[in-house]
Design a protein around this nucleic acid. Structure first.
Lengths: 311, 311
DNA sequence: TGTTTCAATAGATAGAATCTATCAGGAGGC
DNA sequence: GCCTCCTGATAGATTCTATCTATTGAAACA
């Protein structure tokens, strides 16, 4: 099998048509280049160079192979360039997953600022249910996941990004809409719409409703936060939606109103998850810090933890 | 600089995602593959593989580089294929030069048979004047030249293909056309048309005419054998044209007739020339033998020498 | 808890790439 | 014609490196 070095020598000789000068070009001595080219010819079983004291000429095969060798060397050079580019932190593409209940509002909130400060960083985004995304993350299909914590998998690590209360969403004319802050006990016997199973919020809201004596609507399970909101607007019941979602979608229209729940309100802890031992673990930690900063500016009403070592 | 071997290991690992099996695939032991991959990462300065006991995952850069590495390996494989192909004699393309006074009839005579017996052999043909073609041959722009011998250049070798007499070509109604064989002395004071300077035949016919007392037409010098023939047909004079040309072009029409000259007739020796030490010298010798055989069949009236070592 | 599996590591070894020094042949100058 | 310079090939020594065997340490599994 020919070596890259031999190809380099052939390319040099093709350029200079002169052994000594080719050797200089390749930063080796002339005997090295001579023997390696002879070795290359031996391995390929073809004469590449016509040697004479007065003239060095490549054979037609030699020309052809030199041409191809140059292409190979160029491609290898590109590989090195790819590596060099990737070496810089927060460059290149990250394959991230976002749980559906975050996708519609989290990325739009942080990506513009992030793109401004780190223009070389791109995201390949995949939405889905937590279980599926965690599986993909473990398998290597994703590098990074935004979802609700805690995540209890031995080979994954997580760091919190923000603490997001759930807010009561009701039709404008609903009696509870008149309260500025709603007490959990006020939800007794109310009908609550929630997401289909598989979402973290499904279980969380189910538990909460059982505690306060509210009734989960048996007839309907939403597939997204948007459908829940629309069902509330149609008077099918109340719902509990994440504060940042409310901020980005509910606050913009008049059909439904959102009210905070009195502490201890149900809430979710949103964080970033990656594989323990991921090559980019350091980058991910840094990225978490950057995202927390962005959130502090863009969503001051949300509680963002101090930076910490990923746990 | 990464080595091809390291790329091969990366490709194997990308395929199996398992060190031991990748090592098997690459026909080395697992520690070898491990250390070489680590070395590759070190050289590129990038982590390519996420190692954990339970799972092996390529990083995104790892994927990208593995993809490119596979392409490089494929291209190197192609280089080996090119060499393998070139190794078979009388395969591939030969860059040949043919002097203008041969081009119109020599190749059409031999190429059909040659193509039948050696379908993988192709010609890239360049016509020109002898001097220019010899220069190109020496510089490496051509590999092989068909022209009149002798050729006296130290770095070239030649082998004869056939001995080709020149024939007298005259208008049908010309008095000399009545002789079956024409004596050279009969050309005394006749007007002979010949080619422009630069052709071997220009000098050869000039010498011959001086010897027999014929007159070279001062007003006209042909640029090709075809124009000479046409000038003869128009009654501008007589001409001396090569026997195989006569056979292929003159014999087909009625306007001019060709008559052999009584010995010692002027003649030219046609041969093949290549560079001393050409990679394909052996092929060229073989080719000469094949061409001589074809000529013995296709042009039995022509004298073809026995095969010999190229001189 | 013991067993198996996996990748990393250590140390030895054979092979390869490179170097310095030198040779042999041809070109060009005098 | 002879000498010198220049070319590429060759010889031999040396350093590097790719590879091997043997082993370790850690996780997964039963």
């Amino acid at each position: 099998m020919p070596t890259l070095q031999q190809m380099r020598y052939l390319a040099a000789l093709a350029e200079t048509l002169h052994f000594r000068r080719a050797a200089e070009l390749a930063h080796v001595t002339q005997p090295t280049l001579s023997t390696q080219l002879r070795e290359l010819e031996l391995r390929l079983g073809v004469q590449l160079v016509e040697r004479s004291r007065s003239r060095v000429i490549l054979t037609p095969v030699g020309e052809e192979i030199a041409r191809r060798a140059r292409a190979v060397l160029r491609d290898v050079e590109e590989i090195r360039a790819v590596a060099r580019f990737a070496r810089q932190p927060l460059h290149g593409t990250m394959k991230v997953g976002v749980v559906q209940t975050l996708g519609s509002y989290l990325l739009p909130l942080i990506v513009p600022d992030l793109h401004r400060s780190h223009p070389e960083l791109g995201f390949y985004v995949r939405e889905g249910l937590p279980e599926a995304l965690l599986g993909r993350l473990e398998q290597g299909g994703l590098e990074l996941l935004f979802c609700a914590l805690p995540v209890n998998r031995a080979d994954l690590v997580a760091t919190p990004l923000f603490h997001e209360p759930l807010m009561l969403v009701a039709p404008e004319e609903h009696p509870l809409a008149r309260h500025e802050v709603v007490d959990a006990s006020a939800l007794k016997d109310q009908t609550i719409l929630t997401l289909e199973p598989g979402h973290r919020m499904h279980d969380q809201i189910g538990d909460f409703c059982r505690d306060v004596g509210a009734r989960i609507s048996p007839d309907y399970e939403g597939t997204s936060l948007d459908t829940l909101r629309q069902m509330v607007a149609m008077g099918m019941g109340l719902s509990l939606l994440p504060a940042l979602y409310v901020r980005s979608e509910v606050a913009r229209e008049r059909l439904v109103v959102a009210r905070p729940l009195r502490a201890p309100a149900p809430a979710r802890q949103i964080g970033m998850v990656w594989r323990k031992g991921s090559a980019r673990a350091g980058e991910f930690s840094d990225l978490a810090g950057i995202i927390r900063d962005i959130l502090r500016t863009r969503a001051p009403e949300i509680s963002v933890p101090e930076d910490e070592a990923a746990a």
